[in-house]
């Protein structure tokens, strides 16, 4: 069942407010008011409205979480693959998330190599595909930790959440477009970039995403 776009927006706001910010309920004022959408959601038991407070109910949580996931995946796609600038990203992602059907979303997730964080550093709720850590054979972008020794490609992007980690990777020459080849996985990751070999731990390696060469 697919809800209306506005209903999805409401669920998303509620989920973030309740699950990430820890509020028990949300004031109606913070929600784009749309009587139809609210009615639609109360009817199927996803939310409850009392006076001017709304609450996301257990039944609606799964759907809400998947909306957030789609939004953040869309953002990653915009930023890393389509390379949109920030002011455009949020708006486009908002529209995009509604188009991303479950299933299609999974493909995007696989394509992006099961990213963990959105470009703003917020957690992307895990999907089934992430837990099974599914890789399509032709998946074009993979985390360095998912490569086998000997596999090579170009750096697609690096996670940019943690400034210090980011700087360390950048000074080693790990930057989008640079050729990279994984040499060892155990006991630490060793990769070759340009004419330099670099050893890193798993935490650093998992921040590097590689577009494989066919």
């Amino acid at each position: 069942m697919k809800l209306s776009d506005t209903a999805e927006e409401i669920l998303e706001t509620l989920w973030i407010s309740q699950e990430e910010k820890g509020n028990i309920e949300t004031s109606l004022k913070k929600i784009a008011l749309d009587g139809n959408a609210l009615l639609e959601l109360t009817k199927i038991g996803y939310i409850s409205v009392e006076n001017d407070k709304i609450r996301l109910l257990d039944k609606g949580k799964e759907y809400a979480q998947s909306t957030v996931r789609r939004h953040r995946l869309a953002e990653r796609l915009m930023v890393d693959i389509l390379q949109l600038k920030a002011d455009l990203v949020n708006k486009t992602a908002c529209q995009f998330e509604h188009i991303l059907q479950p299933g299609v979303e999974e493909n995007v997730c696989v394509l992006l190599g099961h990213p963990k964080l959105c470009p703003h550093g917020k957690l992307i709720p895990r999907g089934k595909c992430c837990l099974e850590s599914k890789w399509i054979v032709e998946a074009s972008v993979k985390s360095l930790t998912a490569l086998n020794p000997g596999q090579a490609g170009k750096v697609a992007y690096i996670h940019t959440g943690d400034d210090k980690k980011l700087q360390k990777l950048m000074v080693m020459g790990v930057l989008p477009g640079m050729g990279i080849c994984l040499l060892h996985k155990l006991p630490s990751y060793v990769f070759q970039i340009g004419h330099t070999q670099v050893a890193v731990d798993k935490e650093m390696a998992s921040d590097i995403y590689v577009r494989l060469e066919k």
Partner: peptide
């Protein structure tokens, strides 16, 4: 800073590297 989705450090470094390459 608000105009870019990545930290400026990243944006600037990527551009410098492009010129270097």
């Amino acid at each position: 800073r608000g105009k870019y989705s990545h930290p400026l450090n990243y944006v600037i470094t990527v551009e410098r590297q492009k010129v270097a390459s």
